[in-house]
Design a protein around this nucleic acid. Structure first.
Lengths: 340, 340
DNA sequence: TTGTAAGCGTTATCAT
DNA sequence: ATGATAACGCTTACAA
């Protein structure tokens, strides 16, 4: 491996001079600068970032931990995060916890060991608390995405679950739906709690009943919950006329389960959900959704994170946590039937 | 930051002893081992991987560089790669070149600087040659995914573009299609070349004409080629009855362009393509595809890569390059009309 | 403008 | 079974 010493020797200068050339620091004569540069080219020199980070105590690497890499919400979010990070010269590593607290724990350990400069986390759930506490204990700046975790303060970028749910519910009720079911994330996830509450609120506000059995709690990344959704539907006395889903992936499974019964969407049962479907969804704009600004989750989250890191370096006073609430947009398509 | 010296001091041992406990190396009395472990817990010690990698000259980090992170083919591939890597204790970093040679160059530089142990690359095109040569020059093991690059030898995992195209073409021709157009990647990408050739072969074999204007060359990640596809279609004298697309993303755009003209798929024009659509596509299994084994691309590619790394460490003789050809599977759905 | 010495946190090597 | 020392490749602080 070629090191600054190899360069230095060949250029008849000291390693420090080479280092200065590399980092454009200090005053250096144009003559030596160009000589050193030429030799670096010749020798095909590539700086060793690890050695550099070891002394600088910063890696210029940020980490993005999501809960489902196959969900377009998160891939779009990832692009936003990457764009914001690259603008500031940071690189981004990605990890996928698959909604699993164990996998999340492993990633957190990895993050700690590799001295990453900061982390953007979509926490798997309230059980993520100890993981976040680890980050805090080792003073690794982090920003929460999409979900909050009771018990720990931090910057956070959230979707407006309450208002999004309200829009979706009003849309369905406006079209005459009264028996509306909910397929939701488990209540150990903040966004699922908010959506469940808003769902019940909306029904109550319209004097509609909200029987408990009309709520199905699934993980947010139900790779194969088809069967469970099917059984749940079988158990519902009058079938709901519409189903609200906590996210896009659950909506897809729900639609499949409905069709598997020989029923149609939206003719027999309507479906709508949080989060849009990304480019693949464009092939047939069918699903009515409360579209969240996935890209902005990543972009703004990354801005918060890099801001924190800068503050830390400048020893600025710890300001209060920032909380960004991103509005959802109702995108009406064809998956909710008009009952009138 | 807590270091092994802090642990050592508190435990009244040397740093080396602590290091040995951490890595389970050498013989250590059970007494000191447990004492050291206890103190590590107390002090909340986390090893510094950078210092470790600096002396070990290995990072246990592998890199996966894809060309389009919003394409489900690559997210599925990523899961395969990650699964294979994690089994062997490697971590995986992801990068997204967005089909751009410049972005790819930046990632390659980053990879070189960070002394990653190996790289899995879906090259942006033939222009990736210098990038791969850089990797080789610095003896960073790499495995090519999905595309080959003339001028450099390496392990590679490829889809069977020839046979896949043949299947798709036979399917369309079997249903009576004679005017079949091709929306394809640019010819600086090996898979696009193969597909174009096989497309022409299939037509020739059936004594069908293959006018040049029936081929449209786009980038593989056409975020917004809608307009171009529309104009191209406008210029075609008799509209084709069917269009073969080089990948899923191009198929989506093609379908949108067709519909924008007020035409229907498949009633007016049929469409099929390479690569399936992932979970989101399940919402409406519409598109007929030559499904590639995306997960296996990642899994097998990672196995090749880690195998190479192991060989390198063991100073094994360089065996010839391995070339894995993954078959595609024809999945017939509803996007190709029966003309009989 | 350039160089010297020390140190970042870890492990390999050689001693004891 | 444990320790002292040097080294990994780089940068900071200080000196010349």
């Amino acid at each position: 491996m070629v090191t600054i010493y190899d360069i230095a020797k060949k250029a008849n200068v000291s390693a420090m001079t080479v280092s200065r050339v590399i980092n454009n620091k200090g005053r250096i004569s144009e003559k030596t600068r160009s000589k050193v540069k030429r030799i670096m080219e010749e020798l095909n020199y590539v700086p060793n970032e690890m050695a550099r980070s070891l002394v600088l105590r910063e890696t210029q690497v940020l980490f993005l931990l999501v809960t489902d890499i196959t969900n377009p919400f998160f891939t779009t979010l990832a692009r936003g995060a990457e764009d914001a990070a690259n603008k500031l010269g940071y690189r981004v590593l990605f990890g996928n916890s698959d909604e699993s607290l164990e996998k999340e724990r492993e990633y957190i350990d990895t993050i700690l060991k590799s001295r990453v400069d900061g982390v953007l986390v979509a926490p798997a759930g309230d059980g993520s608390l100890p993981h976040l506490e680890s980050l805090r204990a080792h003073s690794v700046p982090f920003v929460l995405l999409d979900r909050e975790v009771p018990g720990i303060g931090s910057d956070v970028v959230l979707g407006d679950s309450r208002e999004g749910t309200r829009m979706l519910m009003e849309h369905m009720m406006g079209l005459g739906h009264k028996e509306i079911a909910l397929v939701n994330g488990t209540p150990d996830v903040s966004s699922a709690r908010l959506r469940a509450t808003a769902y019940k609120e909306a029904l109550k506000l319209n004097d509609l009943p909200a029987p408990a059995e009309r709520i199905l709690e699934l993980g947010y990344a139900p790779r194969s919950s088809l069967a469970r959704i099917g059984e749940w539907l079988d158990g519902l006395q009058p079938l709901p006329t519409a189903i609200l889903c906590g996210n896009n992936m659950m909506a897809i499974q729900t639609i499949q389960a409905i069709r598997k019964k020989g029923l149609r969407v939206p003719e027999d049962i309507s479906v709508c959900c949080f989060d849009d479907l990304g480019p693949v969804g464009e092939i047939d704009p069918f699903l009515t959704v409360a579209a969240q600004q996935a890209y902005q989750f990543g972009y703004k989250g990354m801005q918060l994170l890099t801001g924190r890191i800068a503050d830390k370096e400048n020893e600025d006073g710890e300001d209060a946590w920032t909380r960004i609430l991103l509005p959802a947009e109702l995108v009406v398509r064809r998956s909710v039937a008009d009952l009138h």
